[in-house]
Simulated scan of single mutants.
Amino acid sequence: MNDFLPITKIPRTGLPQRALVVGDPERASAVAGLLTDSVLIGQNREYRSFTGTWRGVPVVVSSHGVGGPGALCQLGELAEAGVRTFLRFGTAGALRADIADGDLVIAEAAVRDDGVTAQLIHPEYPAVATPEAVLALDRAAAAHQRHAHRGVVWTRAAFSPMVLELPMRDYLAARVIAIEMELSTLLVFAGLRGLVAGGVLVIDGNATVDNDDPTSYDPHRQVVADAVAAGSAVALDALVELT
């Protein structure tokens, strides 16, 4: 057995207890660039992981790619290596007209439409954020004067529909506020392991009308880039507040 875990290629032991997880490896690099003494500790496939310090507290920043199954592989190896507190920092589509591009959404819970957690535990088991994580993110957003909304987000495996119609109308009626692809996997994983977890998402568009042309999606706009840059500090500040 070598000194590195097989999927992420991070060290098997000795990681800081707090991790910020993101989808995009380039976002992991950008967030790691904000840290003091940032070091690349593992890179394989979509997984890129760093350690460093934020406000004097050791942290991990690691990417998991797109979708719940791949994220689950990353989460398991981070926990194996010593992480006990996880925050996801990503992007999402708004499901409410008053939630604008660049706003933050702080997840209180998630709809488990992720394609993987149904294979881990019965569907009645909830995907809920740790209350302390929600409150820490709320305080950090306020301190940075970022417009933030709290509520339930919808995690779904399919990026766009094909033959089956997705139940967008049902979740709009249920007051779900945003949609993304990985958070419920984190919340269920953390719940089953007794870990701390939460998530904050930057809005990169409005998803109230499900578009069957995924090429029309355009997250690469300045308002989104600026919000991701500002949201990185929000997420890191909340992360180091948690124990």
Rank of each mutant, 00 (worst) to 15 (best):
Q145V: 10
Q145F: 11
Q145H: 09
Q145I: 07
Q145M: 07
Q145L: 06
H147M: 02
A148N: 05
A148L: 08
A148I: 02
A148G: 09
H149W: 07
R150D: 06
R150E: 11
G151C: 03
G151Y: 08
V152T: 14
V153W: 00
V153F: 06
V153T: 12
V153E: 02
W154G: 00
W154A: 00
W154F: 10
R156T: 12
R156Y: 10
R156A: 12
R156F: 10
R156H: 14
A157C: 11
A157S: 13
A157W: 15
A157H: 12
A157L: 15
A157Q: 15
A158L: 13
A158N: 09
F159K: 14
P161F: 08
P161S: 05
M162F: 11
M162D: 11
M162Q: 02
V163Q: 11
V163M: 09
V163L: 08
L164P: 00
L164E: 08
L164V: 03
E165M: 07
L166D: 14
L166G: 15
L166T: 14
M168Y: 09
M168W: 05
D170V: 12
D170Q: 10
Y171K: 05
L172R: 04
L172I: 12
L172H: 07
L172P: 03
A173W: 03
A173V: 06
A173R: 12
A173I: 14
A173Q: 12
A173P: 11
A174N: 13
R175T: 08
R175Y: 09
R175S: 12
R175E: 10
R175N: 14
R175G: 06
V176D: 01
V176P: 00
V176W: 02
V176L: 04
I177A: 04
I177Q: 01
I177C: 08
I177T: 10
A178G: 10
A178M: 03
I179G: 14
I179A: 15
I179T: 15
E180L: 06
E180K: 06
E182A: 03
E182Y: 00
E182C: 04
L183S: 14
S184E: 04
T185G: 01
